[in-house]
Design a protein around this nucleic acid. Structure first.
Lengths: 304, 304
DNA sequence: TTGTACGCGTTATCAT
DNA sequence: ATGATAACGCGTACAA
């Protein structure tokens, strides 16, 4: 049998409404009754029912997160950032995967709305007009809602600085993280001293056998953690930070009704094979020493 | 203004209860009224309220998923598998991160229970006694609940077969996926032809400079997708499958009250640098050819 | 086959 | 400062 507020009220000898007020921290309540109520709550082991509270108050402390594709390696980091913020604020999030079809996305969103979520975070999803809750979009841009995205221009800048005049070849595959950065890259090619390969997503078949020139350097787009074995440079996807920011912005939109925060762009970091952060000292190109030997094996050694 | 069942009932000229029955697909309802109701539903754009439904029916079609650490690279794959199953069955899931402290885990679980989740999936979390909902544990073993885990013995078998007599060195670091496999590994060492390095989790500082012998081979524990650049062998963590299984088992526990499914062990796959699945033809060791050249660059070439 | 009426557990709006 | 009571939106015995 479940303990309800009515039980607590009876045990404390007060009214249901009073119990509710005490629990919600209403200011105008006497010290005496407050203690009585809390004692009863503890004694009976009462747990408030979030569903009933939601039905009555229209506040569910719940947001919906709709992923186009859940299975990407940065999902966890994103959700971790999200939860870091939501946890502090006493919000929960319900996670859905909707694929790339708009019809499924619509379905997922409507489902969440029927759960009375207070807000929505959309990752690589088309925004729907119907939902009258605050929306923050991540990844694909949705005009009309606040957007959190990666600063591709900054990424391109960093890569160009690293290339320091070398030709840059961008190899984008399935699940690429920095889609669109290639268009910002190819402009100013000097083609000296070889090339810099930027590898983003699953390598395509035709790239697997791509011949390389001497003095090559490689950049992987992804996470430092996972790429450490390779001995490559890493252009890190700021997933955790995106989660934090998306949550913060959404909560602002929920609490402060009406305000529509600005779009936000996050700058990804570029790490050397040694794990050092690469900070271009100027905006333009500069000479940067070619990668030294990595401290960790890059692959099976077959020589000798 | 929100459209409720009462509005639909009025528009269709029937009773609220009738609308409810039509929506729930009650068999004993006349064709005529059913069509009337559906017409009204469509015309008014009525959306059922999941919160009210939950309060009334005690069924929320909602489960809670508690992660010890969300930020691991396989979180996304796991959730994807989970959602694949839950989506079909019309269930939603709410995701929480609880860290490693039991107090926080308890807090997260109680919060979910107060939301009236129909079941709980715990990843690397201690199970609580209080929750009287079905529980499936993943990762760390919880006696008293159904557990989904990786078959470490199968993993060890595969690695030993691959080693084919070579010494196996297990380098486990932060975020290791196959914790405990090393104890199943070190037994039968022949130490011929060099060593096989198994790298699991973030490389520790002391391992980064570990000297290697010729004829080495490397196995990374993680995901094929992310490890493709390295040219290493990959012992793939079956995260997606774990999600699918955890969901299936939990739903069984929810639907068929009382049944407690067996614990389940999932066999991880071992892939060659070329992306081929490695299937040891016998249980014991056998000679296996050393890795051929990978089709994708393993790291910056600094020679020549 | 359909309507009536109450319950679910809480918050909000009146009173007092 | 507190009590009584009506919402909140839906499911469901029970009645018809």
């Amino acid at each position: 049998m479940k303990i309800t507020m009515a039980d607590v009220a009876a045990a404390a000898g007060v009214n249901k409404a009073t119990v509710s007020r005490v629990l919600r921290g209403d200011a105008r309540i006497s010290q005496a009754t407050s203690e009585k109520v809390w004692a009863a709550v503890k004694r009976l082991g009462y747990r408030p029912d979030a569903v009933a509270r939601g039905l009555s108050s229209r506040i569910n402390d719940l947001i919906g997160v709709v992923f186009g594709d859940l299975a990407s390696p940065w999902t966890g980091a994103f959700l971790s950032g999200l939860e870091r913020v939501l946890g502090r604020l006493g919000l929960d999030c319900i996670v859905k995967e909707a694929g790339s079809e708009v019809s499924r996305q619509t379905h997922a969103i409507q489902r969440l709305v029927s759960r009375r979520v207070d807000g929505l975070i959309l990752l690589d999803c088309k925004k729907q007009n119907g939902a009258d809750v605050p929306v923050v979009s991540v990844g694909s841009y949705n005009p009309g809602s606040t957007n959190v995205s990666v600063d591709l221009e900054a990424a391109a800048q960093a890569l160009k600085a690293l290339a320091a005049g070398r030709e840059i070849i961008y190899l984008g595959g399935e699940g690429a993280l920095f889609t669109g950065v290639d268009e910002l890259l190819g402009v100013e090619v000097k083609k000296t001293r070889g090339t810099l390969h930027v590898m983003d997503g699953m390598p395509r078949e035709e790239n697997k056998t791509s011949s390389r020139e001497p003095c090559d350097d490689y950049v992987i787009c992804g996470f430092r953690k996972e790429a450490l074995y390779c001995g490559f440079w890493v252009l890190e996807y700021p997933a955790f930070e995106m989660g934090v920011l998306a949550a913060r912005i959404l909560v602002n939109g929920i609490r402060g009704k009406g305000v529509r925060p600005q779009d936000v762009f996050l700058v990804p970091s570029l790490f050397s094979p040694e794990g050092d952060l690469f900070i271009p000292s100027s905006c333009g190109w500069k000479e940067y020493p070619s990668t030294g030997p990595a401290r960790f094996p890059r692959g099976p050694r077959r020589d000798r």
